[in-house]
Design a protein around this nucleic acid. Sequence first.
RNA 1: GCCGGCGUAGCUCAGGGGUAGAGCAACUGAUUCGUAAUCAGUAGGUCCACAGUUCAAUUCUGUGCGCCGGCACCA
Length: 645
Amino acid sequence: MPAITLPDGSVRQFDAPVTGTDVAAAIGPGLLRAALAMKLDGKIVDLATMIAQDANIVFITRRDPDALELIRHDAAHVLAEAVQALYPGTQVTIGPSIENGFYYDFARNEPFTPDDFAAIESKMRDIIGRAAPFVRKEIDRDEAIAFFHAKGEKYKAQLIQDLPATETITLYSQGDWIDLCRGPHMRTTADVGTAFKLMKVAGAYWRGDHRNAMLSRIYGTVWRDQKELDAHLHQLEEAERRDHRKIGKEMDLFHIQEEAVGSIFWHPKGWKLYRTVESYLRRRLDANGYQEVKTPQLVDRSLWEKSGHWDNYRQNMFIAQVEDEDKFLALKPMNCPCHVQIFRHGLRSYRELPLRMAEMGSCHRYEPSGSLHGIMRVRAFTQDDAHIFCTEAQIASETARFVELLSAVYRDFGFPDFRIKFSDRPEARIGSDEAWDQAEGALREACAIAGVEFELNPGEGAFYGPKLEFVLRDAIGRDWQCGTLQVDPNLPERLDAEYVGEDGARHRPIMLHRAIFGSFERFIGILIEQYAGRFPLWLAPVQAVVATIVSDADDYAKEVAAAFAKAGLAVNTDLTNQKINAKVREHSLALVPVLAVVGRKEAENRTVAIRRLGSQAQEVLSLDEAVARLAAEATPPDLKANNTA
RNA sequence: GCCGGCGUAGCUCAGGGGUAGAGCAACUGAUUCGUAAUCAGUAGGUCCACAGUUCAAUUCUGUGCGCCGGCACCA
C-alpha cells in the first residue's frame, strides 16, 4: 500500500502498487502529459516502473535539466534504429548521451559520411513521429546472448557476456526495434522531440581500446527545443570564429610548416605576445620567492636511465646520436631531472627549504601525430615549470601559496573562474601503498588547510604521485586544464636528492612539480581564443596605430608615434596614401585596440583622435593626455598600483 | 598511431583527362580624402610529393607527407 511523497511534501496514499504514470494521472492531466520520467527515491527511472513500497517521487518534465540526459539517450536509440533500417547488416554497439548530445558506435564495413545524414535524420523523424513506446523487459542472461547472436549482433552479445553475473539484463523495445539497455527511458520515441541534428562521423575503437576494431561513430546533438539547439549551434560557430589557428594566421602571429611538425614559427607579433606573457610571469615568480634557472636541452641517456624515463618514456623522446661518438643524448621531455641536478650540486641544508626552482623550460616530446592541434598540442613547447623542494610539513603552506599565486595569474589574464581536480593513485604506479597514503594524505590536508575545494578525479594521478589539476573556464564556457601541482616523493629518491636536517642527518626532500600555464604555447592559444584576438591593451602585440588623414600630418604622426613608443607602447604608423575609411577598416580587421587618427586639425592643436576597436566613437585628447592614459591602461596588471596580490 | 575527409596564387575559395580561374592582399600609377573598402593597371602557380594508367594527369589509381574532425595518447 504505497504512500508516495511528492516534492512539495504532500503524500498520496494508494491501495495497490502503482506506476509513475498512475501517480501522475492521479495528480492531474497536465502532469500526466508533461512527465517524461521520474526520480524514484533519487534515482531516475521509467514512468512505467511499478512502485509497491512507500517512496519519494519527483517527476521529470521537459523543463527539468535532467530531461536532457534522457532525451539524448533516447535519441541515440532512435539513431540506431534509423541506421539499421537504412543500412541492413550494420551492427549496433553502444550509444550513450554525452555533453551536448549523443553518439552511437556502429560496426559496418562501409564508413558513414555526412552525406548520409539527411537520410538518417529523415528516418529518425519518422521513428519519432511514430511515437513507439519504450518498453522494458527483463531477460535471462543466456537467452539474451542467444537472442543477439541470432540477430548477428556480436558486439551486443559480447557486452552481455562481460556484464557481472549479478546484473539484471534488460532489453528496451521501441516498436519492433530492440536494444540491450540499462535504461531509463522516456515514454515514447516522440519525447525525443525534433531539436536534433547529426553532427559528424568519426572512427572510434571498440571499448575505447586501440587494440580493438575501429567502429563508425555518428555524433548528434539534441536539445529540449529548437531555441536551445540554435543556441548550441551558434556557440559552435563562435568557437570556430575564435579558433586560434585561424586568428593566428589572420593576425600574423605564428605558423607551422611541414618541415617542423609540432613546432612553432613565432612571427614578430606572436613573439611579442609571448614575451609579454613571459615577462609578466617572470615578475610574478620573482616576487614569489622563486629562483629561475636554465638547464640543458640535450642530456645524456645515463641521466634518463636513472630518472626512469629511458625505460618508461623513451617512445616519446627525441633521441640524438652523435656520429663519431658512441653516445645517445635525448632532448629533455621535462625539466625535473635537470632541476634535481642543480639541487644536488653541493650540500643542501633544511634552512634552504622550501627551495623554489623555476624554469621557462623548453621541452620536446614525440606526441602522436593525431594529437597535434595548432599551438595547443605541439611537440616542442615551453613549460612554465618549477619544482619546490620541501619537507613534508611544508607541503600545505606551499600548496596554499601556489594556489594564491595561480589565482592571481588567472585573474589577471581574464579567467576569474577555475576549478580544481584532485587526482589520486592510478592503476599503473610506482611506490608503496603506504607512500601513496602519505602523499595523498599530505595533499588532501594541504587543501584543507589552504581552504582549497576540489572535486575528486579518481585514478588520474601521475604514476609517481597525486596531483591537483587547475581547470579554467574561458569566455564561451569551455574548460581548459592548465595548472598542475604534483606531489612527488619518488624522484628525489631515484636521483638521490637530499638535504641536511636540523638533526644533522640526511633527509629526502619532497618535490612539488607545479605549473600555472602548463605550457606557454597552449596558454597563448587559449588566450587567443578567450579574447578572439581582441586582446586587452597590455597584451596586444600592436597596441596602437597612428593613422594620418592627409600627408601634411605625416610629421606630426611620427611625433605622436614616437611619444607613444617612449611611453612603452607598441605603436605603428600608417602614413599610406589611403582614405581614412580604408585605414580604419584595415586596422580594425587587424584587431589593433587603439587607432590614433591625426589630420590637419590634430597637427595644429597637438591632439589625437582616439578610436577604440569595436567602437565608432572618437575621443579627441591632447597628445600628453593620450600618452598618459594609454600608458596607464597598457600597464600589466601586476604592476598597477592598486594590485595587492 | 587508428578511422574518415581534405591538399589549386600570400589569404579565402571555384574548377576540372587536352598549357589554370575569382575576390582580397602585393606591386606600379593617379588620387590628399575626417573614422570599416578611391580608381586604373601589373605581376603572381612544380595545382603537396613520388610512382602508375593514358597519346595526354593538376584532374583517374596507388604510396608517402601534411592538415582537418574524431578515437587512442597526454607518465
